[in-house]
Every structure is written in C-alpha cells, then in structure tokens.
C-alpha cells in the first residue's frame, strides 16, 4: 500500500445501527433507574475525582447507551465510590449501586 503522508480517517460519528447494546440491556434489567438519567450533570459536578480524572457518571451512562463499552469501563477505574453523586441525583438514581453493577457486568472486558 502506498503512503501518501495522510490517511482516510475513520468516521467520528456514532452509528447506532452497529451499537452493541446487549450488555446495556442486561444492565437496564438490573438497574432500571439508569434509563431515568436526563443528563443534568449534577453527578459530574459533585464528583471529587471529576476535575482530576474527568470521571463523570453522566458521560459513563451516555457511553453505555451508545455502546461505547471501552470508554465506559476505562472511566470506571477513576471512581472512588464516595457516593456524592448518589446524594445529588435529582432522579434518585442510586449511582453508587449502579457503578458496582456496571463493574460486575462489564468486568470481563
């Protein structure tokens, strides 16, 4: 193959047709409240790890919903399970419990 000094870059678009949501669907069964997230961001704003590592439960949930498992799992390692996000969630999502469930379900990856 010839090297022209530039490449065909892969599309940054999320293709929902190919998103593998099988694990997410399973997660929804265990944690139905995850669907209630309205992306208000109070979890991320309250998160003590956010400003150091970019940890954000809001982003974590969106990534899972879009089938981006790798990004989600990587983010989980930054959580310290302090539970502040659970305290501020206006939709009453038990985010701490949710994070543990995600760890259980996605740990093989």
């Amino acid at each position: 193959m010839m090297d022209f000094g530039f490449k065909i870059s892969p599309s940054s678009a999320i293709n929902l047709d190919n998103a593998d949501l099988s694990l997410y669907d399973e997660l929804c069964k265990a944690e139905p409240d995850i669907c209630k997230c309205m992306a208000c961001g109070s979890c991320s704003a309250a998160c003590p790890a956010n400003r150091f590592s970019g940890m954000s439960v809001r982003k974590l949930i969106i990534d899972l919903q879009r089938g981006k498992k790798k990004e989600a799992v990587k983010m989980l390692s930054d959580c310290m399970l302090c539970g502040k996000c659970t305290m501020v969630c206006p939709r009453g999502i038990n985010t701490r419990h949710l994070i543990l469930s995600i760890c259980k379900l996605y740990k093989e990856d």
């Binding site: 599309s11 940054s12 678009a13 999320i14 293709n15 929902l16 047709d17 992306a39 809001r58 982003k59 969106i62 990534d63 879009r66």
Partner: peptide, 15 residues
C-alpha cells in the same frame, strides 16, 4: 437519519 448527539459531542447516524 443524521443528528448530533450533543451530550456525547459526536455526530450520530441511525437507520
């Protein structure tokens, strides 16, 4: 159908 998923900051496409 094309849109931007503004919460992910990425374009999104779905059939």
């Amino acid at each position: 159908v094309k849109a931007e998923d503004t919460l992910s900051g990425k374009p999104v496409k779905v059939t």
